[in-house]
Each structure stands twice: as structure tokens, then as C-alpha cells.
Amino acid sequence: MKRVLVYYAHPAHRFSRVNKALLDMAKDQTNVTVIDLYEEYPRFRIDIDKEQDRLRNHDVILFQFPIYWYSSPSLIKEFLDLTLEHGFAYGAPDAALTNKIMGLAVSTAGTESDYSETGYQTYPLRTFLTPFEQTARLCNMTFLAPYAYFGAHAEQDGFLNEHVQSYGRFISALRDETLDIDAACALDLMNATNLPVKG
């Protein structure tokens, strides 16, 4: 069994629909740690030692957040800036995150076709997420294909429910080591339809 840690960040949780549902699903999973960062650090004072201990004590680190202006909420950035200290996360032979897994669970307002060379966002979603990918690489972590939900404002609740259910399977598979990690790394994005769960 792997120890899974979900970091959730949404500055306007009360306006959220997709992420709220995803968060509830994450919390329903047993033996999974879920941290609501804006609730934990409303004044942005990250407890670096505490967070580094948390990272040490888990094998899979999942960041769940809405994409806004092509990036994560600012608290995630603050968290990474302070917690991924030199000597702890990188720059040392025995860096603490080596061989751990990093994953993202993100949502966007734009549709999948918006995020393409012909769409109005010009670039595919993965391009906007390269900072996270490289962060994982520098920390010697395995970076999974992001678990993504497009068109968060559109009324397509049937699919949302499927996406949320699948999120539960995604997390529990990570915990139970039934997710095909190699396959998950090789994908471009993950969603309810292509989740590479073994067996």
C-alpha cells in the first residue's frame, strides 16, 4: 500500500462546483491524507517543517486545483516555493522526494478543443503544466499524466459525475498500487475514459 497525500487549493471554494465534488470524493477514500491548503494557511504562512514532514511520510503527492490564468492558485506556488527547499527536495544526493510520485488533478473552463493549436488558448493543456512536470523531474519524482476536467462551467453534469467517481478510483488505485504507473506516465492526460487501472 502506498501512502497518498492530496493537496487541495481553491481560493474561492464557495463558488466551486467541480472541485468541491472532487474534494468530497478524495475525502471519502480511506487511508488517504487530504489537506485543504487555503483552510490550513489562510494568511499564507506555510509551516515549512510540517509540510516537509508530510511529504516525507507519503509516497504519492497529488495537487488538486482549478487552472486560473494558466496556472495554479497562488497558494500552491507559495507552498512549492517554500517547501521544496534546496537540500530537501533537490540539490542533495539523498533528496527526500526521490522516487515518489507527483500527480495533478486540474479543471479548466475552456474545452479540450480550446486547448489546441487551433483553439483560442493556442497551446495544449500540458504546455501550461510544464512547470509542474519539470518540478517533479528536478525532485527526482515520477510525473503522472494530469487528471484533467475540461469545460467546468458547462452544464454536463452526467460527465462530471463520471469524472468524480473515476477520481475516487484513481486515488484508491494509487493507494493500492493497482494503477499502471508506466502507462499513466505515458498518457497525455488522464480522465474517466482512459484511467490505466490494473486488473
Binding site: 481560493p11 474561492a12 471554494h13 464557495r14 487555503y38 483552510e39 489562510p42 494568511r43
Partner: peptide, 8 residues
């Protein structure tokens, strides 16, 4: 019950 960040 207000979220801490909202309260802030």
C-alpha cells in the same frame, strides 16, 4: 463555518 481564507 466561513472558510478561513474567505474570513480573512
Amino acid at each position: 463555518g466561513t472558510r478561513k481564507f474567505d474570513a480573512e
